[in-house]
Design a protein around this nucleic acid. Structure first.
Length: 362
DNA sequence: TCTGGGGTCCTTACTCTA
DNA sequence: TCTGTAGAGTAAGGACCC
């Protein structure tokens, strides 16, 4: 493994030390702490825990992954691949408790922490005393001692490389990547390993003969901008070179609050859809009030049985957290969608959020 | 055959207004 | 007053992330 950096690539502040922590098979690992008798068996956490119902895999244990089961896979498919898997329901509150304990440990190492979802975080350890490797080992040891969970850690001069690094050795890994390591460690990786490259972009890239991150780098910025647009093309090029400047964000305010529901069976009548919309709207308004926000824009989303997804939005003259106004606006949006097919999902979103008590002048 | 839920961000199109 | 246009705000859809 190549440790300290030579400033041959990267282009930015090569002295920064960013650490990325990624918990290993987090939901499944927490469940195993409660049910040690399941250790060594293939465990799948997802949906209601009933693989004959609608839902997807949130986390598969490493044993289950050997059967080809992975996150985002329909539970029904997972059941076919692995009938002997143990299926468990998602207990988000329990995972959130563990997440809070882990984040607390990280904050004691450095106050510059960015929370990225329930099982991940970035930590700026530039000013933390000691060599990077030692800090990484100390974090892993402490997380394991205090929670019984393992994590994978990546350390690099920026968030992008740190995230890729933490994924290089999983589970229970520790990887240091410097800008000089990009050609050797990063370029051979599949293009899909770049954050921001999902299944669609991966296919597009493959069609252009690009399979690895190194292939992206080799095409050059102009070529990429021409095909992927100014912004994304430039991002792809810089990312492939290990260049990334986004800062650690320690405070975060929500931009929208939403709820959606997939029916167990596609809804064939308007009343079912309307009842769900009314209930989801109540939930959204209740969350908004609880978190102290009012919103200006209401968006209603409908997904039909064939997966066609439509949305309709209405922006109000001013922010509100009034349930009646929200309900009326949501139904006005719903009225603009012709329900000619059976409905699979209904959702409602509040955006244009303003904290209550925030100045009226924006 | 199957494809959750809660988010963010980007692109494109359209409309209104200066 | 007319016309063209730039820019802001809004709307819709899509890709992506955990």
């Amino acid at each position: 493994m190549a440790f300290y950096y030579t400033l041959t690539m990267g282009g930015q502040d090569g002295n920064k030390r960013i650490l990325h922590v990624d918990m290993d098979a987090f939901f499944a690992a927490v469940e195993l702490l409660r049910r040690p008798e399941l250790k060594g068996r293939p465990v799948v956490v997802g949906g209601s825990g009933d693989p004959t119902k609608r839902g997807v895999v949130s986390t598969a244990s490493y044993e289950a992954r050997r059967f080809g089961v992975h996150s985002a896979m329909p539970l029904k498919t997972a059941l076919k691949l692995c009938p002997q898997c143990v299926f468990l329901p998602v207990d988000y509150n329990e995972y959130a408790r563990f997440s809070a304990r882990i984040k607390k440990i990280l904050l004691e190492i450095s106050p510059l922490m960015e929370d990225v979802g329930i099982d991940e975080a970035y930590l700026d350890i530039t000013a933390t005393p000691g060599p990077s490797e030692e800090i990484g080992r100390a974090i892993k040891a402490r997380v394991f001692r205090e929670t019984g969970l393992t994590c994978s850690v990546g350390i690099a001069p920026n968030k992008l490389l740190a995230k890729i690094a933490s994924d290089l050795r999983k589970p229970d890994g520790l990887t240091l990547v410097g800008p000089g390591d990009v050609p050797e460690l990063i370029w051979p990786l599949s293009a899909r390993k770049l954050p921001g490259v999902g299944p669609k972009t991966e296919e597009l890239l493959k069609g252009l003969g690009i399979n690895t991150i190194g292939d992206i780098a080799a095409r050059g910025p102009e070529w990429l901008r021409e095909r992927f647009g100014e912004s994304f093309g430039q991002y792809l090029y810089e990312a492939s070179m290990g260049i990334h400047e986004s800062p650690i964000i320690t405070e975060w305010k929500p931009k929208s609050i939403s709820r959606e529901e997939t029916f167990e069976q596609d809804a064939a009548n308007w009343q079912t859809v309307a009842r769900a919309l009314a209930s989801l709207t109540r939930d959204v308004v209740s969350s908004m009030r609880q978190e102290g926000y009012a919103a200006r824009t209401v968006t209603v989303k409908i997904r039909f049985e064939d997966f066609e997804t439509l949305s309709r939005a209405r922006t109000l003259k001013q922010e509100t957290d009034d349930l009646e106004v929200f309900r009326r606006t949501a139904f006005e949006c719903l009225g603009r969608i012709e329900l000619a097919k059976r409905v699979r999902l209904v959702g409602v979103r509040a955006s244009g959020l303003k904290a209550r008590g925030e100045s009226e002048i924006s």
